[in-house]
């Protein structure tokens, strides 16, 4: 079972992950360790850009609420789930 990501948890990209933005929107993440590829949608790419320099979960969500037009009420839960997926696939690291 995956651990719940707290509000002050520090989110950083994994050193072994590189990404490319796609012309048609969204992007592709490559885990250099496993050689596995993942596609992310435009919101996923925005999340990826926002954690470029590392930030806490709360900072990330407030940035998203500011940037996304008409953010849904369940944005926190969606982002938590998304980050959980990325962590599970070793694309990001969650500290604290």
């Amino acid at each position: 079972m995956r651990a719940v990501i707290n509000g002050d948890a520090k989110i950083t990209k994994s050193a072994s992950t590189v990404h490319r933005e796609l012309a048609e929107g969204g992007g592709v993440l490559l885990n250099l360790e496993s050689g596995s590829y993942y596609s992310i949608n435009p919101i996923g790419l925005l999340v990826w850009d926002l954690i470029a320099d590392g930030c806490t979960f709360d900072e990330l969500v407030s940035q998203l609420r500011f940037r996304v037009a008409d953010p849904p009420v369940e944005l926190d839960a969606d982002i938590r789930e998304f980050l959980g997926e990325l962590e599970h696939r070793r694309l990001i690291e969650v500290g604290g």
């Binding site: 993440l29 596995s36 996923g44 999340v47 944005l75 696939r89």
Partner: peptide
């Protein structure tokens, strides 16, 4: 556009 981020593993 949905505000729900998504990640999909490739290859399919």
């Amino acid at each position: 556009m949905t505000a729900r981020p998504d990640v999909v593993r490739h290859p399919a």
